[in-house]
């Protein structure tokens, strides 16, 4: 499918993530997480009005995410929120099994659901020291659904075997600029391909053999979704990582 000028990859990813979120779910995002933050706000504005938006500064259900250009952990989220529920309590909530969805990052992933956000090379003398997994190592095992998003999809990201396992197991979905993976029965399965990409392109950019039952395509953003995105994210923070 050819490029359509009405939407971009960041819009497809944001809408795909938004559609994974359900009403009444408790959902958390951390730092450097503009795209999921916008997706949460989109879901809340469209089909999930009672979704509970949790974040690091501790603002429950922030009313606005428009002034957070450089940070998804700024005070605005609390200043426009309805209650204070800070990070340490979000972690405790997840440990009690009451966090429905957590958004996490990572640099390398393999077919067995191993996630690396720590190092390239040896842990004690790394070739590249990465920022670290932040909450991943405790949230991926405890949140009901862990969603990973990554704005790069290449053979250095989706590898045969990760250099280091920051955490593993209990992933739910990985959303990339090309496709959505689902983790089931211990393996990453190709869940859907964005209509802007193709099976060939996904395979060419993935370091392991793709597993899929039947080919599905990710839903494209609807007109209503795109209109709402303009309203809730006028400064296009969802595209910061692109």
């Amino acid at each position: 499918m050819t490029n359509n000028t009405d939407y971009r990859i960041s819009d497809i990813m944001t809408c795909a993530i938004s559609n994974m979120l359900q009403d009444n779910e408790t959902v958390f995002h951390g730092v450097s997480s503009h795209l999921p933050m916008v997706a949460m706000k989109l879901a809340k504005s469209m089909h999930a009005p009672d979704l509970v938006h949790l974040n690091i500064p501790g603002g429950v259900n922030p009313g606005s995410i428009q002034h957070s250009s450089y940070s998804s952990a700024g005070a605005e989220l609390l200043g426009t929120g309805e209650a204070y529920f800070p990070l340490q309590e979000v972690f405790d909530l997840s440990m009690r099994g009451k966090l429905d969805v957590a958004f996490l990052g990572g640099i390398q992933f393999d077919i067995n659901g191993n996630v690396n956000a720590s190092v390239i090379g040896n842990y004690h003398k790394p070739k590249v020291r990465l920022p670290g997994g932040a909450g991943s190592a405790v949230l991926i095992p405890t949140a009901k659904k862990a969603i990973i998003w990554r704005t790069k999809h290449d053979k250095r990201t989706f590898v045969e075997k990760v250099d280091f396992t920051t955490t593993r197991g209990n992933l739910w979905r990985i959303v990339t600029p090309l496709c959505v993976f689902e983790f089931r029965h211990g393996k990453l399965h190709l869940e859907s391909i964005h209509p802007t990409s193709s099976l060939e392109e996904v395979q060419e950019n993935t370091g392991f053999e793709l597993i899929y039952d039947k080919l599905k395509y990710t839903s494209l953003p609807t007109k209503q979704e795109l209109q709402m995105l303009k309203k809730i994210d006028p400064h296009d923070y969802r595209s910061i990582e692109f």
């Binding site: 997840s94 440990m95 191993n114 720590s118 842990y123 997994g133 190592a137 405790v138 949230l139 095992p141 405890t142 280091f164 396992t165 920051t166 955490t167 593993r168 197991g169």
Partner: peptide, 9 residues
């Protein structure tokens, strides 16, 4: 600590 039960860390 709950949660941290797998991986190389």
């Amino acid at each position: 600590v709950k949660g941290l039960n797998a991986g190389d860390l």
